[in-house]
Design a protein around this nucleic acid. Structure first.
Lengths: 140, 140
DNA sequence: CTTGTATTTAACCAGAAGGTTATTTAACTG
DNA sequence: CAGTTAAATAACCTTCTGGTTAAATACAAG
């Protein structure tokens, strides 16, 4: 059905659909049948079956057999891989507050300066510095 | 270009492509131009431009202007949203070992019960770590 | 062996994704 | 102004996605 791309791409791809995320949410509560997984949705069974195939291909679920039923089980390892990828970027949002503080501090200083030099503030715009000076400021 | 689905779907969708993840990896090092972002790939500029549009639509990057250049910057909040979603499932892989331990302990008790129906209660008590104070934090 | 139940497969469809080349827009430069 | 650079847009193509209905499979129970 889908391309044989890498595992991580397949995982994110699988998570990119609300129906599939809802299925995973249900499976987080415990193993269950395809019919029960399908019941909350108004789509046809084959459609759900396809979603399950996508999830299985991504390693997010596994299936066993119980009479006519094919119970699905969530497989957390694939989710962990996605989490591991995000881990690399965690600092980017965890440092956010610190940077906001830096920014606010800078603004405060600027405000104080502006109090004494109000007139020149407008002129600065016209007095464009040469070349790639980039007076646009706060470029880390 | 892409569907106007919910933000989380758009984010996971954006992350489901290796090229886009590579772009984000580069942007994690700092803001840069489209040309530089495109340079590692053998695809055309319009292709990269499309990838950037997908990332921007998902809120994963933002763009500013600097002369002819349109520098891209990573936006960590969208990544955090993905991480928050995964957070709900974290216990599934973090508790895995604990549950395996529980299972093995149960099997052991069963085996012993089958052998001799004598004093295994004390052993169980001794072996049990008691409480789930493992506090396996989410930060590595 | 026939029927019912649970689920998958087959065939098909519209629209999205990801790529291409050619053209256009935007901003600096001489 | 004309020319160059950086990037986006337009038009087009192929493959993938997510859904459909109809038919097939696997199993259990009469």
């Amino acid at each position: 059905m889908q391309l044989a791309t890498d595992r991580l791409s397949a995982t994110f791809q699988a998570l990119a659909d609300p129906t599939r995320r809802a299925i995973l949410a249900r499976l987080a509560l415990g193993e269950t049948s395809v019919s029960e997984l399908a019941s909350p949705f108004k789509m046809s069974m084959p459609a759900v079956s396809k979603h399950l195939k996508v999830l299985e291909h991504a390693g997010l679920i596994s299936r066993s057999r119980d009479a006519q039923m094919r119970p699905c089980k969530i497989e957390a390892q694939a989710l962990k891989q996605a989490d591991d990828w995000l881990e690399e970027y965690r600092r980017l949002w965890e440092q956010r507050l610190d940077r906001l503080e830096d920014y606010l501090r800078a603004v405060q200083i600027q405000a104080k300066t502006a109090q004494t030099e109000t007139a020149q503030a407008e002129e600065t715009k016209a007095a464009k510095p040469k070349g790639k000076g980039k007076s646009r400021g706060r470029k880390k």
